[in-house]
Design a protein around this nucleic acid. Sequence first.
DNA 1: AGGCGTTGGCTAACAACGTTAGCTCCGGTG
DNA 2: CACCGGAGCTAACGTTGTTAGCCAACGCCT
Lengths: 217, 217
Amino acid sequence: MSTDAVGVVAASTAAAGVAAAGAVAAGAAGMALPVARIAPRPVPPARSARVTEILQAALRLLEDEGAQSLTMRRLGEVLGIRAPSLYKHLPGKPAVETALIETALWEIGDVLHRVVDASGPDDVVGRLLAEYRRYALGRPNLYRLTAVDPLGRTDLTPGLEDWSGEPFYRATGEPYLAQALWAAAHGTVLLELAGRFLPGSDLDRTWAALARAFTVR
Amino acid sequence: MSTDAVGVVAASTAAAGVAAAGAVAAGAAGMALPVARIAPRPVPPARSARVTEILQAALRLLEDEGAQSLTMRRLGEVLGIRAPSLYKHLPGKPAVETALIETALWEIGDVLHRVVDASGPDDVVGRLLAEYRRYALGRPNLYRLTAVDPLGRTDLTPGLEDWSGEPFYRATGEPYLAQALWAAAHGTVLLELAGRFLPGSDLDRTWAALARAFTVR
DNA sequence: AGGCGTTGGCTAACAACGTTAGCTCCGGTG
DNA sequence: CACCGGAGCTAACGTTGTTAGCCAACGCCT
């Protein structure tokens, strides 16, 4: 995995195009897909160099050794310091997790917006799902982290989750269909990551069936 | 909540009708829905009276006080014994969780098979999803428990997960579409339980959009 | 009736976890 | 030169899952 993902996210600026708000009210019927970007990309919070280092280490630790290895002591260890010293930089473990979740949301948002930009009405849904799947499979433990708890919305960068989910709206042109598609992708990824589909299943076909269901016919 | 769910599950026998296996190979085109039951209902493992008591208490504890309250000490407390004594009956906490997950799978399977039995080709998908949602919302913490970890398949009653997922096949008539529908329902429930849809969303409409996507048109 | 093994409780304890309190050292600034 | 804040440290607390070892009660077999 790319170990400097946190740094990349913190550095990238990605001017998000803001589209005419009229597109929102247009409804689904006969609308051109994909819809243009609307929500502005939220600005990542400023972080000290040391904090960035810590989060990089945490991400690497999480992906390399699994969620149960992401402990404050182990995190300190890979950084060459003791666990209590981490509290000089971060308020606690939930803050580490929240920061990692934000990383995931930023990466997912960037990746999905980009693929929607590059797609036409016929293949948006399929390509969106493929990219969603590809991302989650590439960072399985990080993705799962985003799914565990009610996600302390409070200390999440405002607008981040909306912006990162917007590609689903852009792909469907209808907010509720967008939510359904997002949820479907989320569930399919989780089951695939957990290895819970019937053994021997050709998961490509499962994803294809999903794409077909959500493709306007 | 019904506190004796574990007992109910352990007691119920529910002779599952076994259908002609030919239906499996029939494919999706022009097939009558819903498909008949195929997989036999697995037989619940025999449990001592005390173990059943413990699992009932665990389920009640989980639903009443949340997952973070389901600790061995707290579980012992509500039973009037000390935590180590639990190990005279169960090998550890994972065993408690696995047993609860099995409870959920049995209940879900029963509920979904029943609703598919009572549905016609036009309304199967919608009613199946509605029932899935209703169950999960009624036992939120239990449902979440089934989603957390890779689900130690080893010590799960053989065939249980397949049988409990079969209603999705019965509703769609095609295995991969069934997997996609199951995954979509799973994801939507998880996001709803986690409160992660946009605030103010009318979730009924999200579920309706999902049902529409999976309804053969 | 008497020994005896199994069942099911107990306490004490361990390792690992997140976290807090309080000390120290070191580098920059007045 | 004084000092002050940043960033490390150790010690410790409370919780968690879990193990070891002890003991009382009950059923059973001779």
